[in-house]
Write a protein that binds this DNA or RNA. Structure first.
Length: 1061
RNA sequence: GGGCCCGUAGCUCAGCCCGGUAGAGCGCCCGGCUGAUAACCGGGUGGUCGGGGGUUCAAAUCCCCCCGGGCCCA
């Protein structure tokens, strides 16, 4: 190994730039694909396509792709032939709205009349294409290895054609149908919105009016209804009441009103009526069939039909005692419950609002008025004039608005194409059972929504989408659903320029029934249709059958939890309609990227993190490791501070590599020659420990990855390199590698370190592909004559023969002992540099005892002590007070209800209990009526100790440091002080690690004696060939120091050559 | 209004499935170390485990209700 790193200033940004170029130049992605393609193990991954509404990407989208990339890289390095075609979702209203804005379009009509559908669609496509390219650039920036040259794109003709195939399937299965539906309608976009598209609400002000509907045949008596949508009154057909609610006849002034009893007080208060009298109470069901007169009947043409139905009907689902009057005005053309009930009663569904939100001619006097403004005003005015208005107020309530253009929506009965998903509900549920979910609760959520599945209104009255492949005969109404381009050509005689509107609309068919002309219905598909077919459409199916048949089913998909109802569902739906089965077998659900306070990130909230900004500030690997460390299905709280913290860990990781580079480089370590096998006999206990740790790490890592718990794998990676390697192993072996000679002891440490780090490197590569690639190229590739890229390596399986659980436990204990001993020293004010003569480990735990014995040398080294004694706890019996702490886990099940009394006893008579247990191993007593028998396992005894022992307690042991210092230790301590200062000066003077020096020390006699006695030690530590007493020569680098209150001067001079002695 | 998830130290989060003396990292304060050191080590500080109730000898953990946040629906 050559030392390629130790002279380099670490900068993760330049590392990443270097690696990006390297990948580009060597075409590393292609090499990786080639290697994978030779494997027989397939893995079909399906990318959930991001929507191409903007060039940049959301932090959440970045996280999403990082998760995917980590998993795909893992599987490639595990020898799978991974299918990794990315996708882009390109159709739909959001893009149409943006193009409308850029072309200055205010109304839908301008698209057909002024701009032209062809130009409009071209603009949409160009826009999507540009964003697709920009997003691709950013995904590549993150180091995502996917097939970026061959993405699937939903606007491509091949893709649309695949979509048509599914329409035909649905048609053949009797699932595709046309029907009247009450849908949310955007009067600006002039299209219907699906339920799930009605996602945005605004607090809007509307009229809140109470209207009197005179009861037929009873003069001066009226039904009182309440509404916030006066514009629906012209379409009123009947009034709904609740059969079990109590209603009253109330006298107000000279007239009588009927309304729910529970609402009287509130309504009268609101209307400012102080005097009223309840005449009669009755249950709602007695109102059934009561006929009324509509106050605007003569002004609205449509009322000529509707008037026949004016009466009270029972509708418990539509009536609440919490608002209104308990009598609900119903217009089946403008409400979903109204629509259902109207259908049940055989009432005609009449909608009086047109596509543009203006009242239709059938609205008579109100024709041409805009529904929520002009029509409302005119209607209220007429009601007032006619004395039909009981009270008029205003209300601010949540009102649905168009998610793209923010225009208030309306409900409206329209003819739409639907897929009758409710018909295949059971089949959906059955097939969903086969899917495996991570985390498991996602499945519950998924099944819940399947049980409540509703029909899917699929038609949109728009332009930029997959055109519905339905042709209808102008003459006889016969319908044909086209499943492919070939079929279209066969029946229509030609192929359109492309499958989008308007070109596809130019193709007309000859009706096979009557010979008439068939034209395509003008609608396009809901954009959710597009991504739902990706599992086969992205493979070109059905035109090309082999890919899907070879790869199916999708092995796994990964998206955010919003997609449980979204994409995960739409894929299943398409799978069941098209193939009768679930198209995927495994799902990983990830969380949302939120801001630091846990709120959604929005440009409007000012908490939006711009992706380009992020990548400029934080290196990609850091972003990758940080995001993947977040529990994957939980929301990610974005934090610059946390990210910067993670960044600091990278310095430590880098330092591990510079350590290797420096020493292994210096000694020309050759992994092909200096193998573990060769130095097996020279492995020290810490080496064996690291070998065990790294394999244990790999075992857990693979287990986590196999369960898609990538955050666990990410944490394991960090933990191993930071804690096990950097903070512990490297500390332990430092002294072993400081020697110049090629000792087997040193080579054993190198072989161990190389083995461990090389394995870690491969396992880390999917997570931090840049740093691992860089280090691999600089340190490992040449040394072991490895493949061209770290990403062409295999991730090794754990070698369980090297796992030694007992050793790991022992080392864990040894670390605890070291920590406790250091804490004890600290308490006594003893610096680490000053040696102590002995430490005592008192324990009854065999594990601690073995740790102290078998790893004693290592412990002594770390705490700078001369000897370690292991004693039983009783041996520290020179002591005073004992406290006893209960072991709840043992006492609880034994004494059950009496446990609290036992705890009390232990508090009061702890000393006595402790003595009895130590002397007899047993304590017996009668306490408050409870017979208490205690053995050592029931309690923990705590003690205090004499002055000269500094004591620190661990979980199951006590470490006592003997603080009495001998002459010898004082001298050694002083020598170490000198060494430390010389080392410091070596660095200051810019000497290389390998340089030799001569040293001059001018100091007092005691210090001089220390230097004399410890001369060899000082020499070997500092690479000094000679140590002189007295003033340093003038050419020396010299400095004044102070140690424990005494002054000394040290000078060093670089020695010409190594000592020949 | 319904379904699911989250709420643990000043901050970010483990622990909860399977009940047994509340943890890590960061921050802050004090001390130390220094031949991988823009590192690292030791100590200290800091918690009504969102709130309330229940089950149990014992609840952060299981059950119920409520509050706050998120996602999806109505």
């Amino acid at each position: 190994m050559r030392d390629a790193l130790s002279n380099e200033r670490y900068d993760q940004f330049s590392v990443e730039e270097w690696v990006k170029e390297f990948w580009e130049e060597r075409n590393v992605y292609r090499l990786v694909k080639e290697k994978a393609s030779r494997s027989a193990k397939k893995l079909y991954f399906l990318d959930g396509p991001p929507y191409t509404s903007a060039p940049s990407i959301h932090v959440g989208t970045a996280w999403n792709k990082i998760i995917k990339d980590v998993i795909l890289r893992y599987y490639r390095m595990m020898g799978f032939n991974v299918w990794d075609r990315p996708g882009f979702d390109t159709h739909g209203l959001p893009i149409e709205v943006m193009i409308e804005k850029s072309l200055g379009i205010k109304e839908k009509g301008e698209i057909t009349d002024r701009v032209g559908i062809d130009r409009f669609v071209e603009e949409c496509k160009r826009f999507a294409e540009r964003n697709l390219r920009e997003q691709t650039k950013r995904f590549k920036e993150l180091g995502v290895f996917m097939d970026w040259d061959n993405p699937y794109v939903t606007f491509k003709d091949e893709y649309i054609e695949s979509g048509w195939w599914l329409f035909k399937k649905a048609w053949e299965k009797g699932l595709l149908d046309e029907d009247v539906y009450v849908v949310h309608w955007c009067p600006r976009c002039q299209t219907t919105l699906a339920d799930y598209e009605v996602s945005e609400y605004r607090d809007l002000e509307d009229p809140s009016i109470y209207v009197k509907f005179p009861v037929k045949g009873r003069k001066g008596e009226s039904l009182l209804i309440w509404t916030t949508t006066p514009w629906t009154l012209p379409a009123n057909a009947f009034v709904m009441a609740h059969p079990d609610l109590t209603y009253v006849r109330v006298r107000v002034g000279g007239e009588v009103l009927i309304l729910a009893k529970a609402r009287v007080e509130e309504v009268m208060r609101e209307a400012g009526v102080k005097e009223y009298e309840i005449l009669e109470e009755m249950p709602g069901r007695e109102l059934e069939g009561l006929e009324y007169l509509h106050p605007l009947e003569d002004l609205v043409d449509a009322q000529r039909i509707l008037a026949r139905y004016h009466r009270v009907v029972m509708a418990p689902e539509a009536v609440t005692p919490h608002e209104g009057t308990g009598l609900v005005h119903s217009a089946p053309g403008h409400g979903d419950v109204d629509f259902e009930i109207g259908k049940r009663l055989g009432v005609p569904v009449i909608s009086l609002v047109g596509d543009d939100g203006r009242m239709l001619p059938e609205a008579g006097r109100y024709a041409g008025l805009y529904f929520r403004t002009e029509a409302n005003e005119a209607i209220i005015r007429d009601l007032r004039e006619r004395g039909a208005l009981f009270h008029e107020g205003r209300v601010v309530h949540r009102y649905p608005v168009c998610w793209r253009c923010k225009t208030p929506l309306l409900l409206r009965a329209t003819k739409q194409w639907v897929i009758r998903v409710s018909k295949i509900r059971d089949e959906l549920i059955r097939n969903a059972e086969t899917i495996e979910w991570v985390p498991r609760w996602a499945k519950e959520r998924f099944m819940h929504l399947l049980r409540n599945v509703r029909d899917w209104v699929i038609s949109r009255q728009r332009f930029w989408g997959i055109p519905l492949p339905i042709w209808v005969c102008e003459r006889c109404g016969y319908r044909v659903v086209i499943g492919s381009l070939d079929e279209l050509e066969k029946l229509g005689g030609r192929r359109p320029r492309e499958l989008h509107r308007p070109w596809v609309d130019e193709v007309t068919l000859r009706c096979p029934k009557c010979g008439g002309v068939m034209r395509r219905v003008p609608d396009v598909a809901d954009v959710w249709f597009d991504s739902g077919i990706a599992f086969y459409a992205s493979l070109g199916y059905p035109k090309r059958r082999d890919l899907w048949e070879r790869l199916k089913p999708v092995d796994f998909i990964v998206e955010g939890h919003d997609q449980i109802r979204g994409w995960f569902f739409s894929l299943l739906r398409s799978g069941v309609i098209g193939f009768g089965e679930a198209p995927y077998r495994r799902v990983l659900v990830h969380g949302f990227a939120l801001d630091e306070q846990g709120r959604e990130m929005h440009k409007s909230l000012g908490n939006y993190i711009d992706f380009d900004d992020l990548i400029k500030r934080i290196p990609r690997d850091v972003v990758r490791l940080w995001t993947t460390s977040n529990t994957v299905w939980e929301d990610l709280r974005f934090s610059w501070r946390e990210m910067e913290r993670m960044w600091r860990d990278f310095t430590v990781i880098w330092n591990v590599f510079t350590f290797m580079s420096m020493y292994m480089g210096l000694d020309a370590y050759d992994p092909t020659r200096h193998t573990l096998e060769r130095y097996a006999k020279h492995l020290r206990v810490e080496d064996k420990w690291l070998l065990s740790r790294v394999n244990n790490f790999l075992r857990k890592y693979h287990k986590a990855m196999a369960s898609l718990l990538i955050h666990e794998a990410a944490r394991l990676l960090r933990e191993f390199i930071i804690n096990d390697v950097s903070r512990w192993y490297l500390r332990l072996v430092r002294r072993r590698v400081w020697t110049d000679e090629e000792t087997p002891d040193k080579m054993a440490a190198y072989a161990t370190l190389y083995y461990a780090i090389r394995r870690w490197l491969a396992a880390a590569a999917p997570f931090i592909p840049f740093l691992t690639e860089y280090v691999y190229q600089k340190l490992f590739r040449e040394a072991e004559e490895g493949p061209e890229s770290v990403h062409l390596l295999d991730i090794p399986e754990a070698d369980i023969t090297l796992i030694d659980e007992r050793l790991e436990e022992l080392m864990g204990k040894a670390r605890e002992i070291v920590e406790a001993a250091r804490a004890a020293r600290m308490k006594a004010g003893l610096k680490i540099r000053r040696p102590v003569s002995r430490i005592i480990v008192a324990t009854s735990s065999p594990l601690v005892r073995d740790a102290a014995r078998e790893l004693g040398e290592l412990i002594l080294e770390e705490v700078n002590a001369k000897s370690i004694e292991v004693l039983r706890p009783e041996a520290l019996e020179r002591v005073r007070v004992y406290r006893v702490e209960p072991n709840y886990r043992e006492i609880g099940p034994l004494y059950k209800r009496d446990s609290p009394k036992v705890y009390e006893l232990l508090r009061e008579r702890g000393e006595e209990v402790a003595r009895a247990l130590m002397e007899k191993g047993r304590f017996e007593a009668e306490y408050k009526g409870v017979r208490v028998v205690l053995e050592p396992r029931h309690v923990k005894v705590v003690a205090e100790y004499p002055e000269w022992l500094s004591v620190e307690e661990g979980d199951d042991f006590i470490v006592a440091v003997d603080t009495r210092v001998t002459e010898e230790e004082i001298l050694e301590g002083l020598a170490r002080e000198v060494v430390r200062r010389i080392q410091f000066m070596r660095k200051e003077a810019g000497l290389s690690v390998t340089d030799y020096i001569e040293v001059w020390v001018d100091c007092d006699d005691e210090m001089g004696r220390a230097i004399g006695e410890k001369e060899d030690y000082i020499k070997s530590e500092t690479r000094a060939i000679r140590i002189h007493r007295g003033e340093p020569p003038s050419n020396a680098y010299s400095r004044e120091w102070e140690v424990d209150g005494r002054r000394l001067r040290i000078g060093i001079v670089k020695a010409g050559k190594s000592p020949t002695t």
